[in-house]
Write a protein that binds this DNA or RNA. Sequence first.
DNA 1: TTTGTATAGATGTATAGACAAGTTGGAGGC
DNA 2: GCCTCCAACTTGTCTATACATCTATACAAA
Lengths: 244, 244
Amino acid sequence: MINRENGVACYQQLSQILIEQIEKGIFKPGSQLATEIELSKRYRLNRHTVRQAIERLEDEGLVYKIKGKGTFVASDKINYKVSKRTSFTTSILDVGLNPDARLLDSYEIAAGKELSKRLNIQSSDRVIVLEILRFVNKTPFCHTTSFLSKTKFPELRSLISGSFSLFGLLKKHYGVDALRKSSTFEVSMPESSDMDMLNISPKVPMLAVKSISKDQKGGMVEYCITKFRGDMCSVSVDFNGEGR
Amino acid sequence: MINRENGVACYQQLSQILIEQIEKGIFKPGSQLATEIELSKRYRLNRHTVRQAIERLEDEGLVYKIKGKGTFVASDKINYKVSKRTSFTTSILDVGLNPDARLLDSYEIAAGKELSKRLNIQSSDRVIVLEILRFVNKTPFCHTTSFLSKTKFPELRSLISGSFSLFGLLKKHYGVDALRKSSTFEVSMPESSDMDMLNISPKVPMLAVKSISKDQKGGMVEYCITKFRGDMCSVSVDFNGEGR
DNA sequence: TTTGTATAGATGTATAGACAAGTTGGAGGC
DNA sequence: GCCTCCAACTTGTCTATACATCTATACAAA
């Protein structure tokens, strides 16, 4: 199976073989791959060479490993839609899946240099920080950190408990109708907190989306950073639609 | 420097040390890191362990390696702006850099199942494919593959040579005013063609953007896939602005 | 029934050595 | 002066071995 004369590295050949097997659907999502030792025997390669090959598949998000258990085939990507008005819940329901969310933490900090610029406030002003973990079919999917001015929304923290319709809350209690103004997309690798919360390995690249929302008068409402598992989703932007 | 009793893997400790040194700016972009053997001597680690550590930095796009030469610190990310009307050239000029482009190839294919759906044409219809490589400061930056209906733009291929203002061309010759309607963002790993064209290693994740543009009557104009180097840029979306 | 222990098997980490292949610069020949 | 070629140095690949750590299971002990 492995050609040792054609100049192509053994681990790359094995990567290719495994990728083809997965893409042909020989293994279903969630099913276990052959163990490293099995593969090393079958293809007459050293276990480390096999590990190099599987590392590539991990990089591409095709498989994931669990220490002590084995290597498993990953699932397909979920398409997540974003527009001026986006709700996580409806966006996930639209694609026939089961959304859920948990408020991990809410606290206050001083704005500081960076945030004061983003939120257009003084750097000594207080900022409310909300950390929300969202799930799709019980699996951690993305992690959002929201920043809002405490001056504008003084009682927000006590209001939010239980409810995650942040924009609904802002409208109801403050009469603020927030609209997404811009989003910045970036590839980033997970920090250790991301790895814990989303239960991923350091090798899974993340899609980081930084968004700015304003009210209808153009006043800053929210600056938020959402980190998606790059292996689990793509994110679509609609330049016209109102979304919902 | 390396603590061998605290349960943290040596290669992770070394990764952390190197990341901090880079982020503090001890090494400037483009400068060479210590060689693997130097690091292994300095920190009393095996060369393979050092390689594991550097692999992490490579994953995060902090460094890049050149076989036979060494390991080098990568540059900061460029912010690339996208809106309804986006021109690569002006977007790059806006951030004070020097844009350039090259038409790699132009050819025709039958639409087939996938493309016919995207472009809203028959699967037997002909499709014009344009492959464009774009540069920033002489460095390959992104690779765009555009798909347009040949029925709508029959002579496009002969018109395009030399000029890369595709939308300008469409307006001038066909009276079509194209607007971006939606974009889908996704993390993907480079294929071998990407690695060749953008001159990157298989470890650099890419930001893939699939965009749909329509004319003002809502007719499909273009479906295109742009792959950015994830280590070189972030992409911003403006939900309102006309851009330019 | 519950708890603890032992074991096998899986991935994770670290070390050692060897050779391949690309890059560079200098010695030596012209 | 110019060129070729070789040696030294770099990263890339492969093998071999050892032990750590986590999971699952089986079985004994409380």
